[in-house]
């Protein structure tokens, strides 16, 4: 579904490449995580796949076609500040549908469905400023899913939340993924998060960032928070953390 081939990025004036020959493939319907320390070029990678940033070399294919510019089929959920502050929760979720040309009544129905799915029923008329960080990200997730994109790209979507909220949102994202069957590509620096959510995890090395290894996460589905206490989970977590440490 997404095929990244030898993608590099050198920013003008940057001393080192932000991204060095990254290659991997994300399959349809898969939950794929890119795991790496901060500053390894994860955000650059997401921005290139989304079409916001052009790669210096290499190629990104989406559904067999080269990516040139942002598209409704690849919706990004950013770390923060991505809701429209002047729109209510419902209007935020409806925005993508409005851009798509969906009639008002239909928009309202679809938005209601997704607001329900992220457990924000009753908050339709609330403004983002009155919501907690976790609620805001749930709105952003609902807005992304509502337009029925081919895949959702998540750039550290839980990066600015406290650990408790993080764990709750991980469960929500997982539930959303199971219900919508969307392809999800998420970048994160949190090993536990990557292991818990993913089918496969790509490890990214630090400066210049490239994909060093791709690890299969064979934990059974559906997963609940309890899986984190199992020896298999702990073993995978240790394995990944050693690989990342050894890389430095």
């Amino acid at each position: 579904m997404i095929r990244v081939t030898a993608v590099s990025k050198q920013y003008a004036g940057g001393r080192e490449a932000a991204l060095q020959k990254a290659s991997f493939e994300v399959r349809k319907g898969e939950f794929f995580c890119v795991l790496g320390p901060s500053g390894c070029g994860k955000t650059t990678l997401i921005n290139i796949i989304a079409g916001f940033v052009k790669a210096s070399s290499g190629q990104v294919l989406f559904d067999g076609k080269p990516v040139d510019g942002p598209c409704r089929d690849r919706i990004v959920v950013f770390q923060e500040h991505n809701l429209f502050d002047w729109m209510s929760v419902a209007a935020n979720v409806e925005f993508g549908l409005k851009a798509k040309g969906v009639p008002a009544a239909e928009r309202c129905r679809i938005a209601g469905e997704f607001i329900d799915l992220v457990h924000l029923k009753g908050f339709e008329t609330a403004y983002p400023a009155s919501l907690s960080g976790g609620m805001k990200q749930r709105v952003a997730l609902a807005r992304a899913m509502a337009v029925d994109p081919g895949c959702v790209l998540m750039d550290e979507p839980l990066g600015s939340l406290d650990s408790q909220m993080r764990e709750r949102l991980q469960l929500e994202i997982m539930a959303l993924w199971e219900k919508t069957k969307k392809t999800i590509l998420m970048v994160t620096h949190d090993i536990e998060e990557a292991v818990f959510l993913s089918d496969r995890v790509a490890l990214m090395s630090k400066a210049p960032g490239g994909i060093s290894e791709i690890v299969n996460i064979s934990l059974p589905r559906p997963r609940t928070a309890a899986v984190k206490a199992t020896p298999e989970f702990q073993k995978l977590k240790r394995e990944l953390s050693e690989k990342i440490m050894g890389d430095r």
Partner: peptide, 23 residues
């Protein structure tokens, strides 16, 4: 960030003006 979100959803220039830039 807001402009990027609007571009991502494929909003027209007019919609960007009325729903994003002006408000």
């Amino acid at each position: 960030m807001h402009l990027n979100v609007a571009r991502n959803f494929g909003a027209s220039r007019f919609l960007v003006l009325t729903d994003v830039l002006l408000p």
